[in-house]
Every structure is written in structure tokens, then in C-alpha cells.
Design a protein around this nucleic acid. Sequence first.
DNA 1: CCGTTGACTTCCT
DNA 2: CAGGAAGCCAACG
Length: 110
Amino acid sequence: MKKDFFELVYQVVRCIPKGRVTSYSAISEYLTGSKRSARMVGWAMNNSHNVHPYVPAHRVVNHQGLLTGFRHFATPTQMQELLEAEGIPIKDKQVQNFEKYFWHPNQLSE
DNA sequence: CCGTTGACTTCCT
DNA sequence: CAGGAAGCCAACG
């Protein structure tokens, strides 16, 4: 089975515990070792709509905790509502207590 | 193979 | 402090 960069991203994203969020840089750093390749993660997420099973892309935000990818969802509010539904407070596309909800691929939920 | 793009990040102005 | 440009890496055309 050929594991593309995309699939690796998908796996990591799917491993994000409910009620937690992570950043593109964290995933990129975990996969490539370079936080500079965060764009690759975002790109993978772009294809995530075509992937199965479902990839909780709404749990992936930028390093600020800002919902940058909200415009790629069905509706601009979908991402925020999904996160709020998971118990994550969002204010103006910004994750509140981001560092508190932040999750790292290497840091499995305790 | 080369050029462009992209849901990012960081430095510089 | 806010906005713009550069850097980064991988996929797509």
C-alpha cells in the first residue's frame, strides 16, 4: 500500500481526539519534520473531501488557532459550528484557549 | 521537466 | 500594530 503524504496527513487528522484541535505546522512537523511544509498539510486537506473515511479537517487550524480553512467547507460557518459542537469555543473564527485544546500528533490524548 | 499553486509561517517594511 | 513579500515543500498541469 503506497502511503502518500496525503494519507499520512489524513491518518494524523483522524487521530485528533474529539474536542481537540491541532495546527498545520504541528502535522507538517510531525510528518516531514519541517514546520515549513504546513502548506502541504493544507493541500492534503483540500483533497480530504475526496477521501474516505471522513477527515475532521475542522479540527485542523493554523498555528494561531484561527480557522483559516473555513472557506473550504460546505458553509463558512460549518467549521466553527463543528468545533463548537465538539466543545471547543470559537470566537470570530478564533479558537478560544487554543493552547488548552491544542493537540500534537506525537502527544496522544492522555 | 518546468512553472504554478496552495486550508501556512515568518520576516521585513 | 498592520500589511506585504518571501520561504518552504509537494502535487498538478
